[in-house]
């Protein structure tokens, strides 16, 4: 429950005793977590357990009220420079894609590099093409998000996040808004990303993906990390009752 031990040495995200309240509701009740450089961490747990809030706090989309989080040595505080720096280091992919509907795919990808990282337009465009190749949809560059399928939109969202050249990628249930036949194309892109050595935190219920790609799986319940272990141990020998219950519910139906 407390300090989860890490297998690799070099920590990139360190969270200590993180608390968060929404009004009177205590969402996060002391989360301790260390993620190493290059690690792929899958987070699972019942809805309302606070897992989504936690990764939004890592990106400072929400503020934590107690405890400490440091990302690549930068502490998350009210310091404007730190917030900007952290957002440049972290890419995020949302459940509902959140592509900008008034911009083309290409403009979606180049917007932030040009304006927030002040990259030259030509460089940003070159990079955008490479990224679209990488996620497998170079031919869709001039379309608008509304003209793409869900799977394609999510791959564009991944490319958009990668365009900021982040060190860490956060995925908030990236496949749960997708039709079943599109899930695989997104998971494949994520698998390749993991193989390239990217540090990733993925909230997902795709246990197949977790088994194959994750270095570690963390189980969230009632605002805490109940259990965190390598996939083999997590699936074969879960320690806690709640983990067992959750696994039986999610695997047997």
């Amino acid at each position: 429950m407390d300090c989860v031990e890490t297998r690799m040495s070099d920590p990139i995200i360190v969270a200590e005793d993180v608390h968060k309240w929404f009004g009177n509701f205590h969402v996060l009740r002391g989360v301790h977590l260390t993620v190493s450089r290059g690690e792929v961490l899958v987070i699972c747990g019942p809805s309302g357990s606070g897992k989504s809030t936690f990764i939004r706090i890592i990106n400072r989309l929400e503020e934590h009220q107690r405890g400490r989080i440091a990302v690549d040595g930068i502490e998350l505080t009210n310091d404007l420079r730190n917030i900007e720096a952290i957002r440049r280091e972290i890419g995020m992919v949302f459940q509902q894609f959140n592509l900008f509907p008034h911009l083309t795919v290409f403009e979606n990808i180049t917007l932030a590099p040009i304006w927030a990282r002040k990259v030259k337009r030509s460089d940003a465009e070159k990079q955008a093409l490479e990224l679209l190749e990488r996620v497998g949809i170079p031919e869709q560059a001039q379309k608008y998000p509304g003209q793409l399928s869900g799977g394609q939109q999510q791959r564009v969202a991944i490319a958009r996040a990668l365009a900021m050249q982040p060190k860490i990628m956060l995925f908030d249930e990236p496949t749960s808004a997708l039709d079943p036949e599109m899930i695989k194309e997104v998971l494949d892109v994520m698998g390749e990303l993991a193989a390239s050595g990217m540090t990733m935190i993925v909230i997902t219920h795709e246990m197949g993906f977790a088994r194959e790609v994750a270095d570690r799986i963390a189980f969230f319940d009632e605002g805490r990390i109940v259990e965190a272990a390598a996939p083999v141990d997590f699936f074969t020998a879960p320690e806690h009752e709640r983990t067992k219950l959750f696994l039986s519910q999610i695997l047997h139906h």
Partner: peptide, 22 residues
């Protein structure tokens, strides 16, 4: 949608840029 603003922040746009571009 709120998601638009969050996505803009997540890709690193400042408040001003988010307002004007998104």
């Amino acid at each position: 949608p709120r998601g638009q603003i969050e996505a803009a922040k997540a890709v690193g746009l400042s408040g001003m840029l988010t307002t004007f571009f998104i």
